[in-house]
Nucleic acid binder design. Structure first.
Lengths: 334, 334
DNA sequence: GTGAAAGCGCTAACAG
DNA sequence: CTGTTAGCGCTTTCAC
């Protein structure tokens, strides 16, 4: 029924291995036979079977995308589609396929990850989140599965790509201070997230350097990364205490707070945040300054790093961990 | 090196085929041997190789996700991650894997799709967009690849899931008219998109029924589905002509226009749109009413329909096309 | 209930 | 440059 490599071999009077080599565009094959074989392949509508190929070569040319446990906070954040687009782009160029790690619950996610790794479905992984105690990461590491993490995990040796969070938070804070802010608040959301810690560090450093001290209760945590908590917080707290400027570690929290500020007729240019991407045409509209984290590039670089890791694993080179820093742009309409 | 089914067979004193049956939980195998074999599998850390399994069984248990050509408009829209989450959930439950159709350019996308189908990588496809002349869809159809489209393609027989666009646009328009709107504008964006046509139809019907007529130039097209064009349009056009209410076919265009209205101190409750999801806590914040399209459910149902199609393909049942309508909720804080 | 044997469609030494 | 020969690890008749 299906036309296989053997059919092509017979029809073009060569051996199956020759056909295989033609498919791989092996330089050892003469141009003449290549053309002949290709012609036959076209005539017979031959198409290589990926499963057979993967089995025989023990290479899947597929990478797994590992998502955190499903939550609104993750799926509502522009980070996810943006970074995925970047990964997609790089994977496509390198002829790699992307397999999504499905699964809502924690156990399911681990099961799926095991399927991927132990079932030889993927050659490597990209983690779209960084979490220190993550059982999925632990498992992947324990299996020596090549991987790259988007984010930072101090003390854990992994390949990773990330923005320079302390530096951008520092600059963002400096921006507000230079404009004259004295009583700043930092809205972190979840202090267990490494990027929150790092942005807080940058914030604190800028404060300290400017001789400003952190008022009691000026650091807000325990907020899911969504719009409504930002909105609620702004109405309930921030705008009642006499803060004069705000650094939001998360884009969605910032957006919620922005709504509240608009409603109350407050000037949003006293807040700053970090976004997955920027719409250049939107420059004049954005009510507040932010860092464009270039999340698409983050994804693209993550895939590039993984490809490098995969290549060096093959050449059995030394095991050096790669860290790729992705730059960010400060966007302000002042 | 790797422990295979044969090793298990030897170690537990049965035939490879028996081990295979144990993996599949075949009822023909006695409980006793099942347990014995499973014990050995655990002891030896056996894990089935998916590529071998897929090759031998000629079933991939994988579905391909087909995305439109990469564009900001697609990746910036909450529709994509939301619908993907729903697909993910259903796929996970059914033990299906998801393969993303990578590719930026049109030719690349087609190539990848061919790889997926002809290379036997997927059993079916979910199209995250509906486009009449789409070469990818044409190709998939020509190969009789089981598929479901999210959206509508009148005149083309395909399995699909969708919202009832005419009905919700009708209701949205009615809402504005009941409130007293007389001069309404419809901001479509791209009239080639089927959902825009359908929402326009619902809009027009409501207008007609109310005895209102469409002013010249009251239908806006040729706008990318992004925030900034919505913003620009609102500032440049909408708010200068004396429209008193607006129906936005697209969420992002609406968001842009909303910014403009806020800046100009206008009441946004005279606009209405359609969103991928709603944040229940955000009810009081939202400045304008909208339909929640339940895009996550759209994705979930799409996967369910595909599973049905796959099942009935196996049973060689009659070829009936499935249409699954997903309900939407009107969200308004009035 | 279980085993033997024949593939699934391709790759990869090893020859020549 | 090309052919021969073994597999890759699993599923699936068909026997018994």
């Amino acid at each position: 029924m299906t036309v296989t490599i053997k059919d092509i071999a017979k029809a073009s009077g060569v051996a199956p291995s020759t056909v295989s080599r033609v498919i791989a565009d092996n330089p050892a094959i003469s141009q003449a036979t290549k053309e002949k074989v290709r012609q036959v392949m076209a005539d017979l509508h031959y198409y290589p079977n990926y499963n057979a190929r993967r089995l025989a070569s023990r290479k899947s040319r597929t990478v797994g995308i590992v998502l955190p446990a499903a939550s609104d906070a993750f799926y509502h954040n522009p980070f996810f589609p943006t970074v995925l687009r970047g990964i997609n782009e790089a994977a496509s160029q390198a002829q790699y396929a992307l397999l999504l790690s499905t699964g809502e619950g924690d156990q399911t996610r681990l099961d799926h990850l095991q399927n991927m790794i132990l079932g030889k479905q993927v050659e490597g992984l990209i983690f779209l989140y960084a979490s220190r105690e993550d059982p999925l990461l632990q498992f992947a590491l324990s299996q020596d599965c090549p991987l790259v993490v988007i984010g930072n995990l101090p003390g854990i040796d992994v390949n990773r790509v990330d923005n320079d969070n302390p530096a951008i938070a520092y600059q963002a804070t400096r921006h507000l201070i230079k404009r004259g802010a004295k009583k700043l608040a930092f809205i972190g959301g979840d202090p267990k997230q490494q990027f929150v810690k790092e942005r807080l560090a940058g914030f604190s450093q800028a404060m300290e350097e400017a001789g400003l001290d952190l008022a009691d209760g000026a650091v807000y945590n325990d907020l899911p990364f969504l719009q409504s908590p930002g909105y609620e917080l702004a109405r309930r707290e921030l705008l009642k205490k006499d803060f004069d400027a705000f650094v939001f570690a998360d884009q969605l929290l910032a957006e919620g707070a922005y709504q509240a500020m608009r409603q109350l007729g407050l000037d949003p240019s006293w807040m700053v945040t970090f976004k997955a991407y920027s719409d250049p045409d939107l420059g004049q509209i954005e009510g507040y300054p932010y860092f464009d984290l270039h999340s698409q590039d983050l994804g693209y670089q993550a895939m590039q790093v993984l490809l490098e890791v995969l290549a060096q694993a093959e050449d059995a080179h030394c095991h050096r961990y790669i860290y790729q820093c992705v730059t960010s742009d400060f966007i302000s309409n002042e």
